[in-house]
Simulated scan of single mutants.
Amino acid sequence: MNSIALPAADHSDDRSSRDVRNDRAFAWIVGTAGVFVLVSLIAAAFSMFWGGRLAFDTFGLKFLWTDVWDPVNQTFGALVPIYGTLVTAFVAMLIAVPVSFGIAMFLTEIAPKWLRGPVGAAIELLAGIPSIIYGMWGLFVLVPVLSEHVYPWVDEHMGTLPLVGRFFSGPPLGLGMGTAGLVLAIMVIPFIASVMREVFLTVPGRLKESAYALGSTRWEVVWDVVLPYTRSAVIGGIFLGLGRALGETMAVTFVLGNAHELTASLLMPGNSIAATIANEFAEADSEMYRSSLIALGFVLFLVTFTVLTIARLMLRQLARKEGN
């Protein structure tokens, strides 16, 4: 029997229709994934808001700036945890950003090739250590060192300075917002340094070689060539580390001191939103108590969302200035 050959146009039409179906299916799948992210975000925010509605209905906006946290009398305010969260994150970034920048510059511009691999691997290993390990190390190693050798000197020499002395005065307990900020800095340094190192490696070698040929020093090349070229990505990495610092729980819980007291001193114990929830959720024995803790979670969500939104706006503004 002689087989009848189909025209070439039929094969082409079948393939085209199949490609169209596959393309639509692919678009539907990835679109569903994108919608899933948005739905998850909205659902998480709504669930925390709904769980904290009793606290918001009872205390109103005063919940955000009241510093009283009294489970016995059922009076709750989020000012101390909010303040502790922001201060510890600020201290962490104040330490982590310059150190991360130095690490990234060393690995990309100064370190010999045989050293770049081990140091880079060490940074990645630091990023993979669980936060509870950092907390235990901070409690059993860092706190005794600071309380015996560092904080007494800080209180004696810096606690008497005008204007800034109140930030460095207090008993050398070792536990406090300064210690929590230091532990957070150690935790976020690997993330920021890794991002900075990767983006610094994207700078074309011809740009740096041209700058060196014109007589620029290494610092001038970094400041005038590398940073302008990677500015947007560097800022994104910094805000990535800030987001990690704002939401950290276990490491901060170990070394912060967990005291609901509003104080300017970095040597004094304080509290944070994540630490308060972790410490007290299991012992919340009333509906108002639980609602206040869930409301704290919603506040933390808003703080983190605001910070990341500001980061996106800054990056968009930089991109517009650069003509992208």
Rank of each mutant, 00 (worst) to 15 (best):
F101L: 15
A44D: 05
F26T: 12
P98G: 04
F76L: 09
F90A: 15
I192M: 07
P130D: 07
E280F: 14
G52Q: 07
S265K: 06
S100R: 09
M158K: 01
F106M: 14
A282I: 01
N324E: 09
P118C: 10
L300C: 10
P98H: 06
G237W: 07
V145C: 03
A45M: 13
D67Y: 08
E283N: 13
L139F: 12
T263S: 15
L300T: 10
A25T: 09
S210F: 03
A245V: 03
G205Y: 03
L184H: 07
A275Y: 10
A278D: 02
V154N: 05
V91T: 02
E261K: 10
T276I: 08
D70Y: 08
F191C: 02
S17H: 10
V87F: 09
A44E: 03
L161V: 05
I95N: 01
L142G: 00
S286M: 02
L313W: 10
I235M: 14
A104Q: 06
A311W: 02
A89M: 12
A185M: 08
E148L: 08
A25S: 08
S291Y: 11
L315Y: 02
M268I: 02
L242W: 06
G270C: 11
A264F: 13
E248R: 05
I294G: 02
E109R: 15
F301M: 14
G205N: 11
L142D: 03
L79Y: 08
S17K: 12
A274G: 05
S210R: 06
K208M: 13
E198S: 14
F167L: 15
V20P: 00
A319Q: 13
S3F: 06
V91G: 01
L315G: 00
M48S: 11
T88D: 11
A278L: 14
W69D: 00
G102S: 13
L163E: 01
V203E: 09
A121L: 15
G165I: 06
L115R: 04
G165S: 10
I4E: 13
T179H: 05
S17Y: 06
A43R: 04
N22D: 05
P228Q: 11
T179K: 05
L64P: 03
I238A: 13
A251V: 10
K208H: 00
G270I: 08
L61H: 04
I294M: 08
V154E: 00
